[in-house]
């Protein structure tokens, strides 16, 4: 029995239960007279009944109920101003999928060229170094101005943030194929094209896939912020909209969903990576 307790998931569960308990306790115990700052805040936020609530943060129970409601109406699409949360997630994932696919289509061939011809890499490196650290959101106004369409702009933002990790890891993977494998090609006279397709490419697959995994994580990270700024749908827009309605419970539900989907995307790419990479 005792050794069971040492399993990591038991500890995780205990931490989770403890967290919920403290949360519940903090949000349900009346905190006495509302202090001045809270009252001020409640007035600003337009909430007249602040005094009735123990806290502005909803209790776990309220969040769970709200979660149930949101999921029960997840697929609603009769009112475009009140879209179900599933549709918002579908919009976000669709934008990520498009931006990511475009980035993949650019980054892998380009990374391959950079890896095979060091002179190209050296020529493009200053641009990569300058553009890569720019926050993807910095492109948003320029994108909105240029494309005059919020969806295209968000997809562009995803493209921009997803392209760098894949580009750099593809180039690195292609350029750092083990010397012994290069020597095999040379000693046995494998022609250039076959060398690239059957030696260099398979050798760099693990690096390409790990770049893809980093990129999808960043893309999912950025989509929420991008949609808050420049979209009328998607999970980022949903969170911002619920904030404007002071539906804090909805925001918390959305945050948990964003985390869950991010985790799922990472696990899927990790699995794909394990499936496609060679074993030694």
């Amino acid at each position: 029995m005792l050794h069971r307790l040492r399993q990591p998931w038991v500890a995780s569960l205990a931490i989770f239960v403890g967290f919920i308990c403290i949360w519940a306790w903090l949000t349900t115990t009346p905190s006495g007279p509302v202090n001045a700052a809270d009252a001020e805040y409640a007035r600003l936020a337009g909430q007249s009944a602040a005094g009735q609530q123990a806290s502005a943060i909803p209790s776990p129970r309220a969040v769970a109920l709200r979660g149930y409601e949101l999921i029960a109406h997840a697929l609603d699409d009769d009112n475009p101003n009140n879209l179900g949360i599933a549709w918002h997630l579908v919009y976000s994932m669709g934008r990520v999928a498009l931006g990511f696919t475009l980035a993949l289509a650019v980054a892998v061939p380009l990374g391959f060229i950079l890896g095979l011809w060091p002179a190209c890499y050296q020529a493009l490196d200053p641009f990569i170094q300058v553009l890569r650290p720019v926050s993807p959101l910095a492109w948003m106004p320029l994108a909105l101005y240029t494309f005059r369409d919020s969806t295209i702009s968000t997809i562009f933002i995803i493209f921009i943030c997803a392209v760098w990790p894949m580009l750099i890891s593809t180039a690195t993977g292609t350029a750092s194929v083990r010397a012994e494998w290069l020597n095999v090609s040379r000693v046995f006279g494998v022609p250039r094209l076959e060398h690239v397709t059957r030696v260099v490419f398979p050798a760099s697959v693990p690096m390409i896939l790990s770049g893809m995994r980093i990129s999808i994580g960043i893309a999912w990270f950025v989509i929420v912020a991008a949609e808050m700024v420049g979209a009328q749908s998607g999970i980022g827009y949903f969170i911002w909209n619920e904030w404007n309605n002071l539906q804090i419970a909805s925001m918390i539900v959305a945050i948990v969903l964003v985390g869950g989907i991010g985790l799922a995307l990472d696990v899927i790419l990790k699995r794909i990576g394990e499936g496609l990479s060679f074993r030694e």
């Binding site: 012994e180 020597n183 095999v184 000693v187 046995f188 006279g189 059957r198 398979p202 050798a203 074993r279």
Partner: peptide, 19 residues
Amino acid sequence: GPGPERAMVFQSHALLPWM
């Protein structure tokens, strides 16, 4: 340069693991 009349066995076997 390398040529087909000279073949090599490498210390680290150098087999391509994806084949």
